[in-house]
C-alpha cells in the first residue's frame, strides 16, 4: 500500500498553485502557493469559506487534478510525473473519497455501490462482495445490504459512501464536507464514525469543511483564504 518509508509524510504539498484559464485575460488563481504535509494516520481539517480554494485543494489532494506549479507528492512521488493511468491507480490504492452529496449510484444496491472501487483492482467477484459486506457491517448497515440509495436515509447513504471509501483500505480518507447535507445529529454520528475508522485503522483523515465545529474535532487545522494558508493550528 505505502511505497515510501514510514518516516516520510504520506503526502506533501509544496508551493502549490492552480490557475484556471477561463478565457483570454480571464484567469482565476484558485491556489496561490500552498505548502503543508499530512503524515500517516494524521487527522487534519482544511477550513475555509466558499471561494477560498479548498475545493481546488481537494481535487489536487485527491489526485483528480494536477497543480499548475509546485508539487503534490504521495509517498514522495510527484503526481505531475504520473500519467492518467498511474493517477487512477493511486486513487484506487491510497485514497478513499467521501463526498458531501454521497455520490452513490442510484441503480445499484448498497453492496454493489461498495463493491465499485474493488472492480478496478484484481480479485474474484465473490471476494469483492465479501469485503464489501464486511465494510457495510463495519459502518452499521449489515441489514441494508440490498437496499438502493433511494431507500436509505441521508445518514445511511453517507455510511454506504464511507463503507465504499474504506473497503479498499486506503492510506487516506479524504472527506469533502461530509456532514454538509445532514442534520447536526446525523452529522455528529458520521464524524464519530470517520474518527473511529481513522483511530482503529491508522488511516489518515483529511476533512475539508467550512463548519467550525467539524474543524475543531481535528488534531490540526489548516485555514485557507483566497488561495493561501492564513493560519495553521494544532
Amino acid at each position: 500500500m505505502s511505497g515510501g518509508q514510514e518516516t516520510a509524510p504520506l503526502l506533501t504539498a509544496e508551493e502549490v498553485t492552480r490557475v484556471y484559464v477561463l478565457g483570454r485575460d480571464n484567469e482565476v488563481h484558485a491556489l496561490r502557493g500552498v505548502s503543508f504535509a499530512v503524515d500517516h494516520g494524521e487527522h487534519v481539517a482544511i477550513v475555509g469559506s466558499s471561494g477560498s480554494g479548498k475545493s481546488t485543494l481537494l481535487n489536487l489532494l485527491g489526485a483528480l487534478d494536477r497543480p499548475t506549479s509546485g508539487h503534490v507528492r504521495y509517498h514522495g512521488r510527484d503526481v505531475r510525473d504520473m500519467d492518467d493511468t498511474e493517477l487512477a491507480q493511486l486513487r484506487n490504492a491510497d485514497i478513499g473519497f467521501v463526498f458531501q452529496s454521497f455520490q452513490l449510484l442510484p441503480r445499484l444496491t448498497a453492496l454493489d455501490n461498495v463493491v465499485l472501487p474493488l472492480v478496478y483492482r484484481p480479485g474474484s467477484p465473490r471476494e469483492r462482495r465479501e469485503r464489501a459486506r464486511l465494510a457495510l457491517e463495519r459502518v452499521g448497515l449489515a441489514d441494508r445490504v440490498t437496499h438502493r440509495p433511494g431507500e436509505l436515509s441521508g445518514g445511511q447513504q453517507q455510511r454506504v459512501a464511507i463503507a465504499r471509501a474504506l473497503v479498499t483500505e486506503p492510506a487516506l480518507l479524504l472527506a469533502d464536507e461530509p456532514t454538509g447535507n445532514l442534520d447536526s445529529r446525523t452529522g455528529e454520528e458520521i464524524m464519530i464514525l470517520l474518527e473511529e475508522l481513522h483511530r482503529d485503522r491508522g488511516t489518515a483523515l483529511v476533512v475539508i469543511t467550512h463548519e467550525a465545529e467539524v474543524a475543531a474535532r481535528a488534531a490540526r487545522r489548516i485555514e485557507l483564504r483566497d488561495g493561501l494558508i492564513v493560519a495553521e493550528a494544532a
Partner: peptide, 16 residues
C-alpha cells in the same frame, strides 16, 4: 457524467 466522474475517482482508468 457523474457516474463516470465517480468511477474515475474510485480508480477507473480512461480505458476502463
Amino acid at each position: 457524467t457523474r457516474e463516470i466522474g465517480l468511477r474515475k475517482a474510485m480508480g477507473a482508468r480512461t480505458r476502463d
